[in-house]
Structures are given as C-alpha cells and as structure tokens.
Amino acid sequence: MSADGLQAAAVPVEDSRRVMLELRNVSHSFHARKDSFEHGVHKVLDGVSLKVMEGETLGIIGRNGAGKTTMLRLMAGIFAPTSGEILRHPGANCSLLSLGLGFQPQLSGRDNALLSAMLRGYSRREAEACLEDIREFSELGQSFDEPVKTYSSGMNARLGFTTALLTKVDILLIDEVLSVGDAQFRQKAEEAMRDRISGGRTAVFVSHAEGQVKKLCGRVIWIEDGLVRAEGDPEQVLRQYRPPPAPAAGGGSPPRPGSGPPGHRG
C-alpha cells in the first residue's frame, strides 16, 4: 500500500520505459448538491484507462468540466475512484503542483512560503533553508516580509508559483499553472517548469494553451464528457481538438469541440 492508501501494485512492463502510473477503467461520480435540484449522480469520468510512462510528460486537454482536474485529483490520491483502479509504481509518489498551497492573506510572503513548503512535506529546517531562494526567484524583495493581502495579483502569482516549484515528487501533476505574472515572469516560469520536467521527471500536464502543450508534452490525451476521445502525438491530437468558441450572450450549452474520432474508453 502506498502512503495515501491507494493500491500500488507492480505494473507490468510493456515497453522500454516503466509504467509509473496507470488508470484502469476508472470511473468517478458524486451525488449532486440537493439544493441544485439535481438529486442524481454526477458522473465525471467514465471508465478511463491510461498509462503514464517513466520520464514522459503527458498532456491532458479538454474543455472546462470535461474531467481533467478530477483526473489529476484522482492521480494525486485526493479522491478515490468510484470504480476501477489507480496503480502506481511501488514507492513512487505523486502530487499536484499547486499555486498558493495553504496561503493565508494576513500572513507575510515568508510565513506563507514556510507553511506551504511544510505542507509539501519539507521539515521546518528544510523549509527555512529554501526561503531566501524563494524570495530571490519570486522577485518580491522587501515585500516578501509584508502580508500577502497587500500584494498585487502578479506578486501573489509569483510567490505561489515559486513555492509550488518546491514540490518534491516522482510524478508531478501540473494544472494550468504557467499563466502567472507578467510576460517576463511567465517566460521565467516556463523555463523553470521545462527544467523541472526535462530532467527525466514524469509529469502530467493539464492546459488549455496549445503552445505550452506542444512545447512540454510528448503525448497528449483529449478528455471529453468523462471519456478519452483521442490519445497520441500532440500535433495530431491538438488538430482533432479545437477549443469551443465563447458561448453567446444569454447562455445555452457550449458546442462540442472538434470533430474528433468517436469516443472510446481509454
């Protein structure tokens, strides 16, 4: 058993690389809120199967509400699947790279960075040792010791991204974190992220930004209505997937994206 209670069994080797993470026929659903008049079960993922190989960066694309974030939460062990199995390579840990983990606006950037690092598994001493690096990378200067509530959104994002970089895991799960700060910091963030995932680290990357997906990912999966709609080479899958146009004023359900192949279950 892994530390978080999910089953972790030896995963069979099918190619030259090890399978670090595998979803086998995973479905996930929950009961909708009663006050929303939806008493039924809301199905987010429906029999999804996929593998993440050692050292690869797998991209996940799909429109809002397609189930991408839920899939990352299942991979991170935040949720357990309703049915199916999530298998990890024995000993491999897996967590979300999340901005502003545990941040409290009343606390200074320094205190928030310390707390955030400890929530990511650092000891207090290790976390304290990182603080000056965080201050430097985030370019916050003296503001690092001021309350986060006084920060601009850009400063907040810089601190959040820099502390998120501390995440020490074998399988890194990244959910839309690169669109942070101003253009200059965004470039620095992208470079830092590329360094993190180019060194043989296994990563799963969720994004709407086609450019980032093409640059960072070796393989892409398109999720739609809880099903895997397409899987394979980034160029090919992105061609099939086209982001939906902005919904017209007055609401209505968004049109289905793309004209990809018929849905299949992983």
Binding site: G102, Q104, Q106, L107, L114, L115, M118, R124
Partner: peptide
C-alpha cells in the same frame, strides 16, 4: 512540527 506551525501561523494571522 506542521501542526505546531499551522497553529502558530493561524494565531499570527488571527
């Protein structure tokens, strides 16, 4: 140590 730090930070924020 994390419980202790969370408690101290919460007191500070409060």
């Amino acid at each position: 140590s994390l419980v202790d730090t969370m408690a101290r930070m919460s007191l500070k924020a409060d």
